[in-house]
Each structure stands twice: as C-alpha cells, then as structure tokens.
Simulated assay, not measured.
Amino acid sequence: MITPALTAACPKRTSPRTESAALDEATTAWALAARAGDPDAVEHFVRALHRDVLRYVAHLCADPQAVDDLAQETFLRALGSLHRFEGRCSARAWLLSIARRAVIDGYRRASARPRLADRPDWQLAAEHAQPRDLPGFDDGIVLLDLLAALPDERRQAFVLTQLLGLPYAEAAALSGCPEGTVRSRVARARATLAGELELA
C-alpha cells in the first residue's frame, strides 16, 4: 500500500531541480514497493513516469507512429524485470535506459523488416503525434525542428537534462560518457539553439 510519505514526496511547486529530485525519490520508492508486490505502487510508478518515457522515446525515434508502442514496450520490459531493480540509481534513469534499448531494438526490427505507413493522410498523423503540452502547435514544430538539427549526442544530452530534468550524472550514465562530456554537449546545444533562434 502506498504510504502518505511516498505520496508526499512529490512537492507542490519548487525549483525544477528540486522537483526532479523529489520525483526521482518518489518513483524509486514506488518501484521498490512495486517490486515487493504492491499493485498501487505499480500504478503510481507508471503514471509518474509515463510522460517522461513518451517524450524521451519521441526524441529518439524517427517514426512518430511507433512512439506509443515503444513506450508501452518500455513499461512491459521494466515491469517484467522489476524484480532485478535494486534502487542503485533512480527508477527514472533505470526506466529511460530501458526505453533507449527499446528504441534501438525497434530500429533493428524496422531495418530487418521495413513497414509501410498505414495512414493515407500523413500530415494528419504528424499533427496528432506532436506533443500536446507545448505552448502551441507551431511552437512545437519549431522546437522539434531545432532539436532535430542538433547532432544526436548533443540532442540526447539536451533532452535528458533540460527537458526531462535528469541530473548530469544520471544523463552521463544513460549516455555512456563522462559527466563533463554531457555538460559540454548541453552547452554546445544551447549555443546552437540560441544562434538558430536569433536567425529566425
């Protein structure tokens, strides 16, 4: 059963970094409780991280139609291997590393067996695949275009730290590189994005 202490771990409104740390603490506690067999903890864990997984997969995946399937596959893999989660890192970092592997496996499957689009109206499908929490549709298109122009490593570092709010150390662990490299990639991504916005 979810205790009030676990539910209270998510603050009402503080700085993004404090909020992110509190979310990490709460989701890790939920993952450990779910591992012990608490069905309420499973629900809290999935709900708390579903949006982060969708956003992360959307930025890694070139196929907008596959985002929901890959996010679902991420949670299926995570729940299937929850018994191995020991809380050595945050549950969010652990889950995003599973999401990354799910996307990579998705690329491998797609390259082995190409799929045709099942929708005749590709423009409508693209509009429906846009994130809904951005200030506006046009702003979302601009942001996605700017992020797509970044090199893969810089985009991944920027998305993990600036959009998903992961600490640099966890982003480094997910990316398989030193923390200083992640900081450098984020700084370069910011400079590139700022330059592009000035030209626009």
Rank of each mutant, 00 (worst) to 15 (best):
F45C: 07
A172C: 06
P135M: 03
A189F: 01
L96S: 07
Q156R: 06
V46H: 07
R55S: 14
R108Q: 09
H44C: 13
R92Y: 02
I2E: 08
R154K: 12
R17I: 13
L32A: 04
A126H: 04
L160E: 05
P4I: 11
L199S: 14
D69H: 04
A191C: 06
G140I: 11
D145F: 01
F137C: 04
S15P: 13
T181C: 08
Q130H: 10
R190N: 15
E86N: 09
Q65E: 14
Q156K: 03
T18N: 14
F45W: 13
H83T: 15
S175E: 14
E127G: 01
P151I: 05
L54N: 06
V67D: 06
T3P: 06
T28D: 11
A21C: 07
S15R: 14
G195Y: 02
R17A: 15
A189Y: 02
C177P: 07
R13Y: 09
S90W: 14
E43G: 06
R101W: 05
L134Y: 09
P178E: 09
E19A: 13
L124D: 11
T181M: 03
G165L: 06
P4K: 12
P16I: 02
L174F: 01
D145N: 09
L160H: 02
V142W: 00
V182M: 00
D24V: 00
S15F: 08
L49V: 01
V53T: 07
F45K: 05
P151W: 01
E196V: 04
D139V: 11
W30I: 03
A66N: 07
A148K: 11
